Amino acid sequence: MTNSAHDFDFLHGHWRVDHRRLRQRLCGCTDWDRFDGTCSAQPLLGGEGNVDDNLLHLPGGSYRAATLRAHDARTGQWSIWWLDGRQPHRLDVPVVGRFDHGVGTFFADDVFDSRPIRVRFRWTDMQTASPGWEQAFSADGGLSWEVNWTMRFHRLPD
């Protein structure tokens, strides 16, 4: 097994982020909001984790959020938590997964609008100047997926 503790090293630094988010989720909506933001990521836990600070400029107003990632050296998997500054008392259920063949895929079971869902995060294009991230929900146990949020990262000078 390769040392997967460095999987997220590509993200360290400062970024401008282009966001695209479905206005409504899991109801057949095809209308997207587009907005920008920033992200600053740095390692922690001696390189076995990282954290990023995000500023998102939603159409209805800006907010801050943070992502915490921790690597399990025993399994090679990552756990990823999202903390939304608008709900500072709630840490989202972690998505758990790994990178394989240049794609990072992470899953969690959660609840959305009082119904159980499966959540998927996917990281792509990490070796390019514009890495990509997407979030998808499944209401049928992973048989079908609705991508509801995408981000494209553009590195800023230090």
Score class of each variant (00 low, 15 high):
N3K: 10
N3E: 13
D7F: 08
D7T: 05
F8D: 03
F10I: 00
G13N: 07
H14G: 14
H14K: 15
R20V: 05
L22W: 09
Q24P: 08
Q24L: 13
Q24V: 02
L26M: 11
L26I: 10
C27K: 14
T30C: 13
T30E: 15
W32Y: 05
D33W: 12
R34K: 14
R34H: 14
G37F: 00
G37E: 05
C39R: 01
S40M: 09
G49D: 01
N54Q: 13
L55S: 09
G61N: 03
S62H: 04
Y63N: 00
Y63Q: 04
Y63R: 06
L68E: 00
H71Q: 02
D72F: 06
A73H: 09
W78D: 04
W82I: 05
R86P: 02
R86L: 13
Q87E: 11
H89Y: 12
V96C: 06
V96P: 00
R98A: 12
T105S: 15
D109Q: 15
D110L: 07
F112P: 08
D113R: 15
S114T: 10
S114E: 11
R118N: 02
V119N: 06
R122L: 10
Q127T: 10
Q127S: 14
A129I: 01
S130M: 10
S130Y: 09
G132N: 11
E134R: 15
E134L: 13
A136I: 07
S138V: 04
D140R: 06
D140T: 08
G141H: 04
L143C: 11
S144D: 09
W145L: 05
N148L: 12
F153M: 11
F153E: 01
F153S: 05
H154Q: 14
H154T: 12
R155Q: 08
